[in-house]
Simulated scan of single mutants.
Amino acid sequence: MANAPQAGGGTGTVPPPHSARSDEYDAFGPWIDEVRTADQIPRLYRDYLVDFAAARTILKIPRDIERRKANPGMDLYDNLVILTAEELTILTRAEAAYTAVTLALGDIVAMRTSVNLLAGRLDLHSRSAGPVVVRFNSSSRERIDALVDQIRDRAWRGERSAGCAQGGDPGWRGERPGRGCDRAADPDRTEAALAPLAESDLVLVNQTRRDLQADPAARVVAAQARRNISVKAGARAKFMSWLRPLRLTALAVVESGEQVIIRSRASGIAQRRMADYSLAETFIFAPAATGVTADPLVTYHDVTRVSITFASSAITFETVSGCGVQRALAERLGPRRA
């Protein structure tokens, strides 16, 4: 089992002439398909040894190309993703070859999914390397969500579930006793925490409510409503701000066992006059975080960039300076207390 990303690759197979038909070409579309048999593996990756008996899930992720621009001579899949009980392997197309990265599930410390219209992205952070990025068409987002849930169940919830079965309370870093696995969220406190988002970002509120219903141990600990922002100085910057006014986007912070979940928009700062249809979910295994830093942005008034750091990478969010979101993240993901 690999404990860190491993470089690897293959040459694939020689593509047929453009005029030839193929099952791969006939089945090609923007959707993510599950691979169940060897003949369903895209030809580029067929020299990679796949253990179907050990695999929990195998997904093939298509290229971002219109069907009318594809032809049977192309390698039509950007990624082959293989999940087993212990590892996640991602094969990535690189011209006529591919690269391979294998992550031990126990090394995955954070995951982020984001969609903006049809553009989807999955970022995987591990203890020993920077993020591995997989791009996908959001029409098949449910398959990526299911993959993320499987990783969370296997890598992050196992010890917590064992503690619950024994009547234990895993708590947070051994602190704050009384937060048991079966503790249900207080509906009144949840609604109070989500109140700042209720009018402007109802889609975030509804998504958070659905997740709280599915996970009785989860609760909202902080939220930030969207807010108009202004630049600090400079005639040109102020003119651009007048021409294209900006806003800080909304987010909600949820805790569940040893996980922190941040629901937000794809970008922390967006144009005020444009509708924002994006959604992002960031899942963090709290014991793996090494710290939280807050750096005020020199360009904008009262905006701070919060960085959640891990051994080999970081995830950032833009927040209102000194807000409850900053405090909640620092408390739950900051350095261990003695």
Rank of each mutant, 00 (worst) to 15 (best):
residue 46 R to M: 05
residue 35 V to S: 10
residue 104 A to S: 12
residue 47 D to K: 00
residue 270 A to G: 12
residue 168 G to H: 03
residue 230 S to M: 06
residue 319 T to P: 02
residue 153 D to H: 07
residue 337 R to T: 02
residue 302 D to A: 12
residue 308 I to Y: 14
residue 262 I to L: 12
residue 164 C to M: 07
residue 128 S to G: 07
residue 182 D to P: 00
residue 30 P to E: 08
residue 121 R to H: 10
residue 218 A to D: 03
residue 127 R to S: 13
residue 173 R to D: 11
residue 325 V to Q: 14
residue 161 S to G: 01
residue 295 D to C: 00
residue 203 V to A: 13
residue 167 G to F: 05
residue 60 K to H: 12
residue 46 R to T: 12
residue 34 E to M: 02
residue 168 G to R: 08
residue 32 I to D: 13
residue 151 I to W: 04
residue 124 L to R: 07
residue 148 V to K: 03
residue 335 P to W: 13
residue 305 R to A: 02
residue 51 D to I: 10
residue 123 D to M: 04
residue 283 F to D: 07
residue 19 S to F: 07
residue 133 V to Y: 14
residue 88 L to W: 02
residue 233 A to R: 11
residue 79 N to R: 06
residue 26 D to T: 04
residue 329 L to M: 14
residue 203 V to W: 14
residue 303 V to Q: 10
residue 191 E to P: 04
residue 90 I to M: 07
residue 80 L to I: 03
residue 262 I to V: 15
residue 238 K to M: 12
residue 130 G to D: 13
residue 277 Y to E: 15
residue 6 Q to T: 14
residue 262 I to D: 10
residue 37 T to A: 11
residue 265 R to S: 12
residue 234 G to N: 13
residue 47 D to Q: 01
residue 198 A to G: 05
residue 224 Q to D: 05
residue 6 Q to V: 12
residue 13 T to Q: 13
residue 87 E to T: 02
residue 233 A to P: 03
residue 109 V to S: 03
residue 65 I to T: 08
residue 32 I to E: 11
residue 273 R to W: 12
residue 209 R to F: 04
residue 209 R to W: 07
residue 114 S to F: 06
residue 267 S to Q: 14
residue 216 P to N: 01
residue 282 T to N: 06
residue 19 S to D: 10
residue 105 L to H: 10
residue 208 T to K: 08
residue 267 S to L: 13
residue 123 D to N: 09
residue 158 G to L: 04
residue 7 A to K: 14
residue 101 V to T: 09
residue 330 A to K: 10
residue 336 R to V: 02
residue 14 V to R: 15
residue 122 L to I: 01
residue 233 A to L: 06
residue 54 A to V: 00
residue 144 I to Y: 15
residue 334 G to N: 06
residue 337 R to V: 01
residue 91 L to Y: 11
residue 163 G to A: 05
residue 70 A to P: 03
residue 29 G to F: 09
residue 304 T to M: 01
residue 209 R to I: 00
residue 324 G to I: 00
residue 23 D to T: 03
residue 183 R to L: 10
residue 326 Q to P: 01
residue 299 T to C: 10
residue 301 H to R: 09
residue 307 S to M: 02
residue 298 V to M: 06
residue 52 F to A: 11
residue 118 L to A: 09
residue 221 V to K: 13
residue 53 A to E: 09
residue 326 Q to W: 08
residue 263 R to S: 08
residue 209 R to M: 04
residue 193 A to L: 07
residue 287 P to K: 02
residue 105 L to P: 04
